[in-house]
Amino acid sequence: MKPPAVGYARAGDVQEAVGLLAEHGTDSKVLAGGQSLVPLLSFRLARPSVLVDVNPIGDLAYIREDDGALVIGATTRQRDVELSPVVAEAVPMLPEALRHVGHVTNRNRGTVGGSVAHADSAAELPTVVTCLGGEIVVEGPRGRRTIAAEDYFTGTFTTATEYDELLTAVRFPRLPAGTGVAVEELARRHGDFAIVAAFAAVHLGPDGTVDLVRLGLSGVDSVPRRLHEAEAALLGTRPTAEAITAAAATAPNTIRPSSDVHAPAGYRREMAELLIRRAITTASERSEVTT
């Protein structure tokens, strides 16, 4: 389990990284936290000719607020996001979700950009950014693009990033104060990739009806899923058990789970409905009516 021979270059800034990617094309691979890439190298399932190490790009490790969005630089360590009071206040779903991402040691190295760019549909961060309606910022020789998360994830481990582009930031819309969030993850063990994970953010208006709802699922499709139908069903209703059950019941129709060694597709479909119901229930309980 030793990596194959590979070239290595340290990118000092985004421009250098993009230059290296452009030069080496699809044979190159961005090395961020390495929590997914290095095992692929060791199993010799990935064999790039050049690794472009973006860890030295200090400018990409940041958490800041910008125009109603929380912007997280690509090389920001997941652990820093998890522990950030700014993040907890603006997008409380993030720390909640991050606690399910591997273990502390993985999150110490793992980056937000790396996880999003890796685009594992069973992972947590891609679904968080998708269900919240976030955006992905990429930079390349043709400049900077901001891509809606739902357009960014295009298939299993594939994204709208071109080979010569680097993911530089992820933008999460700020959730209004009083929003209740919940993450219900079913994994074989804590820290494993989800069999199914459900994400919910619910905000109640002054009359106690839902005036903002964001729902998402991991592990149920080739891409992270946002549950528009369920959101629509819930919006404007009081989050009663009946309303939540009805909204959750729309979930199985909008996903295409596959079978693997841990769970058959049918089970995933069933769990998707159950877990999103539980997540909505908890998020609703946690939401505070704001005036």
Partner: peptide, 27 residues
């Protein structure tokens, strides 16, 4: 948790610690 799963072609489907699940302290 633990199972060495073979498919119908007798391919081993659990040949890593991501799929062969040893119990952790939480289990």
């Amino acid at each position: 948790l633990e199972e060495l799963v073979y498919d119908e072609e007798a391919q081993l489907r659990t040949a890593s610690f991501m799929d062969y699940l040893l119990p952790t302290a939480l289990d």
